[in-house]
Structure formats: C-alpha cells, structure tokens
Design a protein around this nucleic acid. Sequence first.
DNA 1: CCTATCATGTAATCCGTTACATGATTAT
DNA 2: ATAATCATGTAACGGATTACATGATAGG
Lengths: 169, 169
Amino acid sequence: MSSDIRLTPTSYIVLGVLNAAGESTPYELKQGVAVSLGNFWSLQHAQLYSEPERLAAAGYLTERREEKGRRRKHYKITAKGRRALADWLEETTDELPELRDRALLKIFFGADPGPLATRQVAAHRAKLEEYERIAELGDEYLPKGPRTTLDAGIASEKEWVRFWSRLEK
Amino acid sequence: MSSDIRLTPTSYIVLGVLNAAGESTPYELKQGVAVSLGNFWSLQHAQLYSEPERLAAAGYLTERREEKGRRRKHYKITAKGRRALADWLEETTDELPELRDRALLKIFFGADPGPLATRQVAAHRAKLEEYERIAELGDEYLPKGPRTTLDAGIASEKEWVRFWSRLEK
DNA sequence: CCTATCATGTAATCCGTTACATGATTAT
DNA sequence: ATAATCATGTAACGGATTACATGATAGG
C-alpha cells in the first residue's frame, strides 16, 4: 500500500498549507497559496489538483469526495503527512537558491541594459510597494514565518531596485 | 520542415553559448555553462544533449556527427538561430524572478530559524567569496554581460548574508 | 595493468505547464 | 435571462531530472 513517492517542494507546500488550514479543497489550497507564499513560490492551479492526489495515494493525505452537487474533493493531512512535514522542517540545508531571472539572463548574453532596466525597475518598485503595504498591516495579521519571508522579499526587492537603477543610465 | 517549437530559457542558453563559442559538443557546452552562467541558472548535463537535438530538428542549429571514434555530435548555430537569439535579446520584459529558496520555504512554514540560518550564512558567505575572487580578476577577463550578472550575484549574496545573519540569533 | 575518473550518450520517469471543459454564481 | 466571471476538474504534452551505461584517459 501507499507506494513511496518523492516529496518535492510542491509536496511540502501542499502539506504545509493543509496542516495550517485543515481540510481543504484544491480551490481553497489555491487561495491559501496565492496570498503570501505565491509571491516567492507560485504554483499552477492544476498542480493543486494533481499533487494532493499523488500525496493521498501515498498516504500523506486522506481524500473525501462530495457525493452530490459539485463532487468536490476535500483533502486532510494524515499522521504520516504531519510527520513528513515535521521531519522536513527540522532538516537544515545549505542548498542555495539560484537567481533564475530571465532579464538577467538576457544581460548575461549581451542585451542592451537600458530598456530592460527601465521596465525592471518599475516592476520591482511595484512589487516592493505591494510588500510594504502588507508589512504595514502589522504583525498581528501575519504569523511569524510568513512575516520573516516577507522581510526577505522586501530586502530582496530593494536590492533589485538598486541594481537595475544603476544599470538604467 | 522544422516544426516550430517553443523556445525556453534553456533554449536561449544553448543558443547563446553556441553563438559565443562557435561549434561545440554537448560536453563543451556543459563546460561553457558551468563556468559563470551555472551560478545563477544551472542545467542538468542531459539537457545539453536533448535540447540541442530539439533545436537542430527545428532548424536553429546544425548537427554534425563524427563518423568514427566517439561519434560525438557537434552543433553550430544557424542564421535562424542567430535571429531568434537576437530577437529575444531585444525584447524587454517586466517579468520578475521568484525567490524559490527552499530554506526560506521552511521558514515560511514555521521552521526554527536558528540552525537553518547558521548553515545558510556559511553557504552564502562561501558563494560570495567565490564571486569576489572572480571579480578581482578584473574586467579584462570578463565580458560585459557576465560581469554585470556577477555584480548582481555579489549584491544578492551580500543581502542574503545579512538576512540570515539577522535570523541567526 | 588495473582502477578511478572524465567524457559522452540514451532511456525512462515524472513533474509541471498548457489547454480544454463544464458547473455555479453574480452582475446587468 | 443572459453574460460574465468564479470555481472546479481532467487530459495531454513536453521539458527536466534521474538513472543507466559505456568508451576514453590518466594515475598508481
């Protein structure tokens, strides 16, 4: 039973959200992810249908389907799921993120920085403001984890605004 | 002829390297990518075999196979390939990168920041030093594009060192 | 000469994206 | 009522990773 599968970041996102939110449908997952997580790790909505299925088949979630009406699927994390999540949370890692910035890739291959920089500065400024507006809400509205990642996002966006601004001239 | 395919960042990496380096084998591509590009956009070596094949089938590259010995494949960019690369380089974009940092993902879901931060600080410091050593070589050894992305990498690593250091206590 | 490592390639799998489709709700 | 949008789901495709495999070269 429950063939063992590889758990990807996507898996942990589903487990994490489900653990915090309790039983949810894929659509609710989507909502949960979009809010804050989506800013630094976005998912396609289709993944929020297929991934829970995968996890359920392997025993990390239970699946309950509505009998009538929309026949929606509801997922809930199991003990096995909670354990997997907890284990993952405890493991440290020295893996570094990659930038994977398409604009930067163009620069690498010799694109003219000027026009690119103009658009990138604008886009990063907009994102930064969005984050700062959320941060102003105050800590009562944000759990500690999301709050910290928001700080990371703000710091990172500030750096990018600086970087592209320098390139703009 | 030459069914049209979707060009992904991977495609442009192959086109870009091939454009700069001239005719190359997948292994040489790998070397070319590893050096500097690999720091912010890494690829699996297998992709450097399959992607050129895909591009060649669509007319962006020519493929020449050694008749004897290792029967290695040599790829060269075509006029169509150069045009595609040039077009892509000219297009600006306001697409933003995502952080996609696994360590940060753990933080988001409530992992204890301390132990994670310790390892991350060390890893980011090491990367930063590696970059700074390259930067010290001076601009004669670095084309302008790679030099700019190196600067981005340095700025970004500094920011991450600051971020994780703050979390460490 | 043997072993380890580098160089080279293919195959299989699987995850992620894109596309397609339809059932509910809300707004006009 | 009708259109538009939100909510929900499946299917197909393709790119990326992993695993497998073997030929060359260098070091002991």
